[in-house]
Design a protein around this nucleic acid. Structure first.
Ligand code: SF4
Ligand code: SF4
Lengths: 150, 150
DNA sequence: AAGTTTTAAGACAATTTTGTCTTAAATATA
DNA sequence: TATATTTAAGACAAAATTGTCTTAAAACTT
């Protein structure tokens, strides 16, 4: 699996948050119901995104989380890096330490271009790109087909 | 991490085996020393490759493992699929079940091309490609720099 | 001010992955 | 045939990831 489950959950939640207009806080309970992710687990993941300043949170009634910037200003790469770290964009197949520097591994040449393309794609795609695409075409972001954009 | 550790170890060992000429069996103990991988763990991984008919094994003195075909006829993709399964070549970012079919996720469009490129690269690169490259340029396939091609 | 709702923090448990060890079976050699 | 060497198989342990639960702190409501 390319990304950890935490990362996938973080992406799903971020994309969904980007689909919501206004600056209201959305409760994590609501998110976890909608996205079919364990509430406490999702809370921990979103805390990482809050710590990375991608989300803002508010306690109490009317509290919850929201994007700290417009969804058009947050890239998928930022979300991935906040949860899984930058390895996928900088390292490679054999995962040798000190990659790409003086002594590469044999796979470096074959992998470098692909890795850079992954980097490009994730750096150039925003949460808004994904939420608009998903909403417009009514695409799912959960395993079951029950998810409904709001 | 894109591939599991088992998969990375399997790739390292396969590439090294492809660098050895002749049809001698190479002992797993020798491999594990050379590649700095736990002997028993490597044994288990190589058993998967043997079960997938990528390696042949022989017990007893003079026993060990060897490629079942020429390194020029075994692709990196075959090794990866044997250990980690085909998911990376067929699935995607959000890892939703039944991917790419009737109801894709919003990331499908952005990811499809990259995923197919990964597939191409791994399908078109052989163990011999990698071992020749590594041997010719004396590139490392282990974390420490002590590895020496033989 | 008191009570309710919600995130924060962290302890804890379950699962998966990674790694170790023991025993058995097969093969070569003496 | 007896012994040593090596893979096969699987039990077991350690570590990382994933998931659950409890308590505390903050913010709103009455
Ligand atoms: S040399 Fe290149 S391909 Fe090899 S491990 Fe390092 S970054 Fe990855
Ligand atoms: S729809 Fe495409 S990108 Fe989304 S999970 Fe399925 S294969 Fe991956």
């Amino acid at each position: 699996m390319i990304f950890s489950k935490s990362c996938v959950y973080g992406l799903r939640a971020s994309i969904y948050l980007a689909s919501i207009s206004g600056d209201k806080y959305i409760s994590i309970k609501g998110l976890s119901d909608k996205l079919d992710i364990s509430f406490h687990f999702l809370t921990k993941i979103l805390q990482e995104l809050t710590a990375a300043d991608l989300l803002e949170s508010m306690k109490g009634p009317k509290g919850g989380v929201r994007l700290s910037r417009s969804g058009s200003e947050i890239t998928l790469k930022e979300v991935v890096v906040a949860i899984d770290g930058p390895a996928i964009f900088t390292e490679c197949v054999l995962g040798l330490p000190g990659c790409g520097s003086e002594k590469p591994c044999p796979m470096h040449a074959m992998w470098e271009d692909t890795r850079d393309e992954i980097n490009e794609v994730f750096m150039n795609t925003t949460l808004q790109n994904m939420s608009k695409e998903g909403k417009a075409k009514d695409l799912r972001i959960t395993p079951d087909g029950k998810f409904i954009w709001s």
